[in-house]
Design a protein around this nucleic acid. Sequence first.
DNA 1: GACCCACTGACGAACGTCCGTTAGTCTGTG
DNA 2: CACAGACTAACGGACGTTCGTCAGTGGGTC
Lengths: 211, 211
Amino acid sequence: MAVGLRLVDRPQNRMLHTNSPAEPATAIRIRDVATELFYEKGYHGTSMREIAAYVGIKPASLYNHFASKHDILYEIAFGTMQEMFTGAQAAIASAASPEGQLRRLVEFHVRYSATNRLRAKVADDQLHAIADEQKGSVLDLRDRYESLFRDVLRRGADECGWHIDDVPVVTFAIATMASAVGVWYRDDGRLSADAIASIYGDLAIRAVVGT
Amino acid sequence: MAVGLRLVDRPQNRMLHTNSPAEPATAIRIRDVATELFYEKGYHGTSMREIAAYVGIKPASLYNHFASKHDILYEIAFGTMQEMFTGAQAAIASAASPEGQLRRLVEFHVRYSATNRLRAKVADDQLHAIADEQKGSVLDLRDRYESLFRDVLRRGADECGWHIDDVPVVTFAIATMASAVGVWYRDDGRLSADAIASIYGDLAIRAVVGT
DNA sequence: GACCCACTGACGAACGTCCGTTAGTCTGTG
DNA sequence: CACAGACTAACGGACGTTCGTCAGTGGGTC
């Protein structure tokens, strides 16, 4: 497990006296462990037994916290998309000009993709494994997120004469470029998330607004 | 199956008299079907039974053509990386200046990612499912591919004063941006692969060289 | 032309293993 | 005492893979 999971082995560890309130609730630990395993091996490549082992409980106990394996993935994906959507809204609201909005948007997206790289990638890549009834609400949120980007670009093209051959194509190009930061970003890496966000902000502005 | 698979049902179809040489060999059909299923549902989400059903043979017969499920994925991933690497080499050789080389490189990458979108995405996303002994050779090829990009950017930064804050970061940004075309490209879509490649070529040049 | 034989690629049946999930029980905490 | 949350044990089913078998094809020999 490359990122940071450790198998928990606690033969005698039945919440001895709920000592530390800092200790995260089991449901959260399950969600975090599952996020990491889904990231590493995919949804279908990860078993409930494995999740349980890393959390340090027996497989059956998972069902005290989640109704099903699908529900774990759904909670990860939906929660992530929700965070991204509200964050992007705030980013846009924090600037007035299209140029300022684009920069804030890209910077937010990069920062989020970096600091929440596991969540963000799982929400993207494992969509196919979400149950059909649940998939709709996640996709809907994603569409609304993308349209935030698109609207800023469209306004820049209309009002400021940006170099945009094709708004949807460029929207997607910028968004995916920023998403991909999560693939290589590391908390202890050479560059901070803010520094990378700034580089990408420059890149996007230069690509679209000009030098 | 969204892309184009059809379940093959042929109760009486034992290569009646090897009539058409146009009919692809079974191994190729298996590879193509597997590519599509891995793309749609991931490696672990796809079963050998399912692959066999879409090809129109029984599961056991798959093993006349591939030693294992892992081998199918490996052949897809390695073959794809090989094609991309040799294509990128040719793209670089076709221009002399860093600017020309970057444009050709981006255009090739976009065009390949568009016209081979299933292969390309499977090779990227399903790497985690490749057996450890085989993973090395695929990763190695990918590293060499990335260094082709990196070298062009580095040369542009050194010799032509391009705006590159950080060569590895920008390398990755451009490459992933171009890869992502495969997510939405469709053969019968509004824009041809060449047109999209050109848009992305412009975008990359503008982002890095300036207007 | 008739025979032989290696080869290819399909088949049905079965293997041991692992899967997600459930039922029922026990135990410590409030 | 009630309850939340852990446990043990087990379920049916799906998994990748192996096996023995067999029809059809093609080339070499008489």
